[in-house]
Design a protein around this nucleic acid. Structure first.
Lengths: 214, 214
DNA sequence: CCGGATAAACTACACCGGGTAGTTCCCGAG
DNA sequence: CTCGGGAACTACCCGGTGTAGTTTATCCGG
């Protein structure tokens, strides 16, 4: 036992998960080798197998953790930009830009998501469910809550907050995600801002309150 | 030479490309083996290498062809639903539903797109460009043309037809694509219709002409 | 219209080099 | 004495090649 448990030195374990995140994100599940992960962690392969039973377990473990971390990161962005709204349109744009950067920028958080999406047919249904729940679904629920609050304050007109959250994500994020292949290819900052702005304007045409000036 | 050229029996070549499409779509690039493709095609492995120099060439070849085929298929759908529009909202919904089915239904056309997206970091930039141009970009341009025509007739209010086409695709298609992981997981028909309808309604809030009744 | 020669294409199968997941063994350090 | 380093080892699978023999299309003389 002690396979997936907390056996071994915690520092080593941390190094392994960190390395696995990097390598899986860079190479994808199939191409990534356990040797490469061990090397990246500065650790013996023996030690890797001492902490995680096999490759799949390691992958799913880091994927789940990564998903939760990203959700938290996005939650912080929402707290920063969508809690005390003064200039709605600009705050929405800022949030959209920052989220796109956080997820897609230079292979950190989004890379593992790309690996998951590539391997989705080979992932147990319950694990996939858990990943979705800790990641995209959780973020969308958070966003829906914020939109509901903004509607309460009369800044948005929203019947179905979940639907509004999905539409916001589609309009301000998925276009960029698709263009950059979920972070695999770089995308210019100005492009991100352009798409985010256009997306927010479209969103406000759907859910904006009254006539927002001009 | 004669590697990628028209050498060999055309029927065999066809069988190989068909098999490659199936296997690459089902397994992805890395997991798919040349032996499996040869077996699926009912052909000797040597014959495969007689027609295509190596695995990568075969993959890129079928991916490009597939991309073009899908674009044509979607073009037919546009001709059917967006040319002689009588009931705009319903026609847009029908088009959205049919397109989602054509792309995502049961591992045919969309599967290779998933493989491309998974492997995007390992694909030469010019080939990727060609794939985009023959596939998503071409479809989007077609759609933009149709929207421009509809705007001409006063059925839509569109400043930037390209932008409108992108927004339509995001609102009516990408939500489904993401949910089903580009066709890897099945998605209920009613779900497709629900999302398409909500997407079209949102789209018409942005670009609809006047007040489309109540 | 026919039948056999000819060459290109295809099959079947063994084979090579290389790489991977996972295990084991020995040894050293704390 | 426990944990990890290091490396070798097993057992496999894959991409690609070489070869020897077989099929298939094509064409030519009768």
């Amino acid at each position: 036992m002690a396979a997936t448990g907390g056996a071994g030195r915690p520092e080593k374990r941390k190094a392994i998960t960190q390395a696995a995140t990097t390598v899986f994100g860079r190479e994808g599940y199939v191409r990534a080798s356990m040797d490469a992960i061990a090397a990246e962690a500065g650790v013996s392969k023996r030690t890797v197998y001492n902490h995680f039973t096999d490759k799949e377990t390691l992958f799913l473990s880091v994927a789940l953790r990564n998903s939760a971390e990203l959700t938290e990161r996005i939650g912080e962005l929402m707290a920063k930009y969508l809690e005390r709204v003064v200039e709605l349109r600009q705050d929405l744009i800022d949030f959209a830009v920052q989220r796109a950067r956080a997820v897609l920028s230079a292979g950190e958080h989004g890379a593992l998501g790309r690996a998951i999406r590539a391997e989705v047919a080979n992932i147990p249904a319950d694990v996939l469910e858990a990943w979705l729940e800790a990641g995209p679904i959780a973020s969308q629920r958070d966003l829906a809550r914020h939109f509901a609050a903004l509607a309460e304050r009369g800044l948005l007109v929203v019947e179905d907050a979940e639907l509004a959250a999905e539409q916001f994500t589609l309009l301000t994020f998925h276009g960029i995600a698709e263009r950059s292949f979920w972070g695999a290819l770089p995308v210019a900052d100005e492009e991100v801002e352009r798409i985010a702005t256009a997306g927010v304007d479209a969103f406000l045409r759907i859910h904006g309150a009254a006539s927002p000036s001009a």
